[in-house]
Amino acid sequence: MAEQVALSRTQVCGILREELFQGDAFHQSDTHIFIIMGASGDLAKKKIYPTIWWLFRDGLLPENTFIVGYARSRLTVADIRKQSEPFFKATPEEKLKLEDFFARNSYVAGQYDDAASYQRLNSHMNALHLGSQANRLFYLALPPTVYEAVTKNIHESCMSQIGWNRIIVEKPFGRDLQSSDRLSNHISSLFREDQIYRIDHYLGKEMVQNLMVLRFANRIFGPIWNRDNIACVILTFKEPFGTEGRGGYFDEFGIIRDVMQNHLLQMLCLVAMEKPASTNSDDVRDEKVKVLKCISEVQANNVVLGQYVGNPDGEGEATKGYLDDPTVPRGSTTATFAAVVLYVENERWDGVPFILRCGKALNERKAEVRLQFHDVAGDIFHQQCKRNELVIRVQPNEAVYTKMMTKKPGMFFNPEESELDLTYGNRYKNVKLPDAYERLILDVFCGSQMHFVRSDELREAWRIFTPLLHQIELEKPKPIPYIYGSRGPTEADELMKRVGFQYEGTYKWVNP
């Protein structure tokens, strides 16, 4: 592979701008107003304001973009700056750019259920340069409990009458099928589907988006991507930290609602779906819905739930269990780990287990898709061969690698495990991989909904998990304890083995 010439960040961002501006969906010269509902909250200060700053800094926003914060707290732009700027990672050389960014910011205080507050917000936006005809993007960085009041008031008082209007809704989209349907029906009564952007930030990850290209742009994968060759698929999300004093919020939802029903299920769809007619948003989402419709409700015998306990040999936070978090209700049975087996009941995947695993306070930070292939028929190497695996590593250190057998150097035919490896950090030294939120917010500006969740996708996802969630809430089974920093409950490994996964433990990928 030829040595790549190092590029400056300015040059890299210039390439990104060229890609972005050559499309006809990006209205570079139009006025846009980006409204952050819930501007005083954690999500706004840690993710949304920093993301908008990065896009502005790199010249990736339309030229005439204004940012308006809205929340109940009586704040000023200076207050917003004070709480969000520490997350910007701005350099001293960017000081003038930073001043320009905050000059485009404003803030309006108001209630979430008060019509007069929204009329005041609308008047404020109209007073901005060309504000009355601007395109408006409303980001709901809010708890779902206020979605209905907020969307109703936005629709009645704050819509642009000339430009387009788009609304970005953060997960969780309800707690179960019934609450999700209620919320979807409410929002759909106010906005068209092409105006609604239900954001799952995992769909903005580079390697998640790469799944489609790997599958449908490489001839070698087509013939082997089926039940005849693939023994099982494992989708993993692991965090090495616990709730760390923020367990009160987590306890309301648990690990299945927080990660599995959305992030992991979306990745499953991209692995299992048929080739779409095109890369058009609805063509892709149509195929994802077909996959979900082929999955039956989760069966309790295919589920393992766990909850982390303190590690007596650990240090600091590792010595504390979930129930030691003062914000967690006493005696909570909320799971911090889950392993679930699903089956896609169609011709391509009949009988292939899709194993979804996620948890907190585990032994490493990792998100990946792992396809394990069947054993080689007619073994001539005296059971020395391990199964081939194709691994798409989402985070950290984005990579695609194939675990395969090669001859060990020497005189004899002794096979050993090795890999074919594409590590993004080595291959793409001159490429700026956008943060997931950067990519998705740019998608909203461009009107691309491919990486957002459609209402029928959402409904099918909740259909699969709601009976299990209701059973857990009714019966309150005690989750299996696992030690902070471990791989999780051993019962999860036993479940995976029972459905056909072979864990060798003899080879570990190392970032080159």
Rank of each mutant, 00 (worst) to 15 (best):
E239A: 04
H124W: 10
V5A: 10
G163I: 01
T76V: 05
K152Y: 09
L211T: 07
F26I: 12
H201Q: 10
Q111P: 05
R136S: 02
F173P: 03
D30K: 13
T76D: 10
D176K: 05
E85D: 06
Y202S: 14
L20N: 07
E18I: 09
L137V: 15
W54C: 09
K95C: 13
N153I: 03
Q4V: 07
W53Q: 00
E206A: 11
L16A: 05
G248V: 12
A90S: 03
R175F: 06
L60E: 04
I15G: 06
L190C: 08
Y107Q: 07
R175P: 07
E3F: 02
F250K: 03
D42G: 12
I154A: 02
I167W: 00
G69I: 01
L75A: 08
I230L: 06
M212I: 05
L203R: 13
H186F: 11
D58E: 10
Q11M: 07
R198T: 03
W54E: 14
K171V: 05
R72F: 04
I234T: 15
R166N: 02
D194C: 05
I80F: 11
N126R: 09
V68C: 06
I48E: 00
Y197R: 00
H27I: 11
G174L: 09
Q83P: 02
S73T: 06
W164G: 03
Y139L: 03
L60V: 04
I67V: 08
H186G: 11
E99T: 05
A71P: 00
F221R: 01
A149M: 06
A71G: 12
G254N: 07
F88V: 03
K89R: 13
M159K: 11
F138S: 01
R227E: 02
F101D: 00
T65C: 14
I255P: 07
D79C: 05
Y107A: 09
L75H: 06
E193Y: 02
R175E: 11
E63K: 12
A90W: 07
V146N: 09
I162A: 09
I33C: 07
Y112E: 07
L211G: 03
Y70S: 04
F88A: 02
Q83L: 05
Q22V: 13
G23F: 15
G242M: 10
R219G: 14
T145N: 07
T10S: 15
G110L: 00
N229L: 02
N64P: 05
V150R: 00
Q11W: 06
Q11F: 06
V5L: 10
C158E: 00
E93K: 13
G163K: 03
R246V: 11
N218A: 00
L177S: 05
F34P: 01
Q4A: 11
F253L: 10
L16Y: 06
E93S: 08
S180H: 04
K205M: 04
T243G: 09
K47I: 11
R72P: 13
K238H: 13
V12H: 15
F101S: 00
T151D: 01
F250G: 04
D176W: 04
N210I: 03
L214N: 08
R9V: 09
I48D: 00
H32R: 06
I35P: 01
Q11E: 13
V169E: 07
L130V: 10
E99W: 02
D100W: 03
F250N: 04
E156S: 14
E206L: 05
R136Y: 10
P240K: 12
F237R: 04
T31W: 10
F56R: 01
V213I: 05
K46S: 05
S189T: 07
R57Q: 02
D30C: 09
L55N: 05
L98E: 02
L7I: 12
E85R: 03
T31S: 08
G222T: 06
M125V: 13
R120P: 05
L142T: 07
L128T: 04
I168M: 08
D42K: 13
L55E: 00
G248K: 14
K171Y: 08
P92Q: 06
E18Y: 07
H186W: 08
Y107C: 07
Y202G: 15
R17D: 05
F102C: 02
V208T: 15
D58K: 06
S179I: 04
K238C: 12
V233A: 06
A6H: 08
V77G: 03
M212W: 08
S160W: 02
H27P: 03
R182P: 06
H201A: 05
L130D: 10
W54Q: 12
F21W: 14
D58N: 08
K95M: 14
Q22L: 15
C158F: 03
F66C: 07
L190E: 06
V169N: 06
E148K: 15
R219P: 06
F250H: 11
Y70W: 03
G59C: 04
E94K: 02
S189F: 04
F21N: 06
E239I: 08
A71N: 04
I15W: 05
S132R: 10
Y49N: 00
T51N: 05
F102R: 03
E244H: 14
E19K: 04
N135H: 07
R136K: 10
D114Q: 08
N185D: 06
I224M: 12
A44W: 04
P172H: 08
H32N: 05
N126Q: 07
E93H: 07
D181T: 08
T236H: 04
N210G: 10
D228S: 07
A115R: 07
E193G: 03
P144M: 12
C158Y: 00
E3G: 07
Y139E: 02
I35Y: 00
D200R: 00
F173K: 01
Q4L: 07
S8T: 14
H32E: 03
E93F: 06
F102L: 06
M207P: 07
A103C: 05
L121C: 02
A141Y: 02
G69H: 07
L203K: 10
I48F: 02
R81A: 05
D181S: 04
L214F: 05
R120H: 11
L7A: 08
F101T: 00
S8F: 07
G222E: 11
C158L: 06
W164P: 03
S179Q: 09
I199P: 15
T76I: 04
P240S: 06
Q133R: 10
P172Y: 06
R257E: 07
I33E: 03
L16T: 08
F88D: 01
F216V: 02
I80V: 06
A71D: 15
R104S: 03
S84M: 06
S132H: 13
L235C: 14
S84P: 01
S29L: 12
S180G: 07
F237E: 07
F87R: 03
D176G: 13
Q22E: 11
L203F: 15
I36D: 00
L190H: 09
A109V: 08
G23E: 13
V233I: 06
Q161N: 05
R104N: 03
D181G: 10
R182G: 11
I199Q: 02
G14E: 11
I33L: 11
H27K: 09
L142Y: 13
A90E: 03
L16V: 05
V12T: 14
I167P: 00
E148M: 12
V108A: 02
F26C: 09
I224Y: 03
Y202T: 13
I255R: 01
R81I: 05
V108S: 02
K97L: 08
G222I: 04
V208K: 01
K97H: 05
K82F: 06
L235Y: 10
S123L: 11
R175A: 12
F138R: 00
